[in-house]
Design a binder for these strands. Structure first.
Lengths: 145, 145
DNA sequence: CAGGATTCGTTGGTCGCGCCAACGGTTCGG
DNA sequence: CCGAACCGTTGGCGCGACCAACGAATCCTG
């Protein structure tokens, strides 16, 4: 890495990828130690934020593909973190609900995220961290959606 | 995405991942249109930067696993972009050399990277782009590197 | 109110990427 | 000279992001 070609080190898209690789590794390792995957956090957080939701809704607001949501819900339901029940108001949908255990699980995963974030942003001052966050937020928002 | 939970939108590690997803998609799509993969660019750039190299050296300076380098070199060699020859000075190594076609190919891929970068950073002013690049560079360097 | 279009959950599959284990062949160090 | 270290290669695993297709349910519109 320290010997990476200079032309790569000056490209923002390369950098954002390297940075993501670092963040990815940190998060994956930390989650793995708790027997979770990144998708679990996204799904649990989305349910907590929006209340009981259909799988299609969860897919849309997390960006996870519908077919992948199925597998994640399976795992979360097996672990007792969510409950999957048919929506009485619309026979096509399942309503996914957070259990108490699931709420605690989400709290635990959020703690993990905070920890890995501190590690990830370690080299930056607080003001710089906020600046980086804002710049990234604008880029992400611009590209929708 | 616009409906993503707020707690996700304020987490830097989540943002850097979303940003990376965007950058990834842009790059992958663009490369795919030219029949290339991201690894091709990394390897070609590394050879161009360091001169003829062994596969192990390319692995180290790109961060790509040795076993994956094999496959990339196979593809690049099949396409005539590099040549793989045993190192006369060390029977364990192969020396990977850029061909003229490979040099042109690298130039083409660099143009693609520049284009996708403009698209990626579109919402930011030039000064902000530079700032984002610097912050990311520090984070990446800190985590080695 | 009937029939086509759309939505939803699910299955099954593809591809890229990152990683790890193991092997035989080569070179280096003591 | 022999073991340690290095190198290329094969094969495999798991996650992440996709896509196609299907039956079931609901909707829209004529």
């Amino acid at each position: 890495m320290s010997t990476a070609p200079d032309r790569l080190r000056t490209k923002a898209s390369w950098l954002v990828n390297q940075a993501a690789t670092v963040a990815h590794r940190l998060a994956v390792d930390e989650f793995a130690r708790s027997g979770a995957r990144r998708y679990h956090y996204g799904i649990l957080a989305a349910i907590d934020e929006n209340g009981p939701s259909s799988q299609a809704t969860l897919s849309r607001c997390t960006g996870i593909d519908r077919s992948d949501v199925v597998a994640v819900i399976n795992e979360l339901a097996d672990a007792g973190y969510v409950e999957r029940a048919p929506d009485p108001a619309d026979g096509r949908r399942n309503l996914i609900t957070l259990t108490d255990t699931g709420t605690r699980r989400l709290g635990h995963l959020e703690a993990l995220v905070s920890e890995t974030q501190d590690v990830f942003l370690a080299p930056l001052e607080p003001a710089e961290r906020e600046q980086l966050t804002r710049l990234l937020a604008r880029v992400v928002e611009h590209h929708h959606g």
